[in-house]
Nucleic acid binder design. Structure first.
Lengths: 218, 218
DNA sequence: CGGCATCCGTGACGATACTG
DNA sequence: CAGTATCGTCACGGATGCCG
């Protein structure tokens, strides 16, 4: 028996058949930052029950959006990772985040917060302020760092990734340091990159063209 | 008591709090084509139960995404219509439709079909083939016509509307005539606008620059 | 007739406990 | 660590009824 479907010959309805169930797109959001273990997913999706998470991951795997892989040879742990088709959902998450940012407001007392949840909005804020910026920008937030992968020629490319840039081949071209409140203001559009820099709520470090461009951005 | 929320300080999660429930985004899809009565919505959303439709519409109204209005003075019927904020969800539907078109395939025997469900994919196909096209293109499908509102300067503008262009002020600059199978092939990316025209599966009528541009499109 | 509200059976969801 | 098992609750889908 197939999963519950809208049974409509409509591209949007088909997409919702695949990713419209509760929690599914938030799982994709987590995996957009990079491969994750089951326990990590469970920790960064507060409120999801274990059985729902397991069943969503199975559905995503059956639909070819997620792959289960064992990272090392002898490890009995494994990672969940987006397939190319799964990664193509980033524009959907980006559109949702852009719309939702309009009245994001302040965090409510009951709201969970994770640093990488700011990645999509910050990517948008940076692109808006410096449309031609290219390279890797490491974002340092109190809760942990991530990287924005800026490529003006490929707006639907990888976009961002988790963690610091440790690999020498992937050394960041610029480092942005800010706090959660500034990230929230940037995400909600209450602040532009240039204004945040001018008010010293955000610092841009680096000697590359990207760093210069981000410092000069309005 | 508020509705069930993900309780995450994340723009995408907030968006899903508002429009992530079953049927909600499909209701928005219907209203993107223009105002609708309750019964019309129910007819074009096969499978939705009456109480769910009524409750979704109330939620959308409470969230400021939909307005209830009485069209005429003495009519006891009323229309549901998107607010500006509701209309800003079109990029979300467009992203979902673009992703879902990848494996839209052929209609299944159980699939419902409505002409205006092709509007978002056709808008994308036309924009891809003729990025600079501007004006109103009436699309004539066997199930009924609708209009694509092309404005290269405002990709997130109205986009499309229901029905023929009756208003003289809104007379179409071009008329596209095709059948459902051609629309499906265009939506799924199996066919480009130019190829459809070349194979005479689609005709472009009109003497305006827009009509000429659509005929010349690759 | 359009616009719901009510009732009811089923399945999805959420919390907790338990297992390989 | 990575799930499965169990169970109570709630949301959903279908049918029917009410009311202007």
């Amino acid at each position: 028996m197939p999963r519950r479907s809208y049974a409509q010959y409509c591209a949007a309805a088909r997409a919702l058949d695949a990713v419209g169930e509760r929690w599914t797109l938030l799982i994709v959001r987590e995996l957009l930052a990079g491969p994750r273990r089951y326990t990590d997913l469970h920790a960064d999706l507060p409120g999801v029950s274990t059985d729902v998470l397991a069943s969503r991951l199975k559905e995503l795997e059956a639909d070819g959006l997620v792959e289960r892989r064992r990272p090392g040879r002898a490890a009995n742990t494994h990672h969940y990772e987006l397939t190319p088709r799964g990664r193509r959902l980033r524009p959907v998450l980006a559109a949702l985040a852009a719309w939702g940012a309009d009245d994001l407001g302040e965090p409510r007392p009951t709201d969970a917060v994770r640093s990488h949840w700011f990645a999509l909005p910050l990517l948008r804020a940076v692109r808006r302020a410096a449309p031609q910026a290219a390279g890797t920008a490491e974002v340092r937030l109190p809760g942990g760092p991530f990287r924005l992968l800026l490529d003006p020629d490929d707006p639907d490319g990888p976009g961002y990734a988790d963690g610091p840039a440790e690999d020498t081949a992937d050394r960041p071209d610029a480092v942005l340091t800010l706090d959660d409140a500034t990230a929230a203001d940037l995400a909600a559009g209450r602040l532009t990159l240039g204004a945040a820099t001018a008010r010293e709520r955000l610092t841009v470090d680096g000697t590359t063209p990207l760093a210069a461009a981000l410092r000069a951005a309005g």
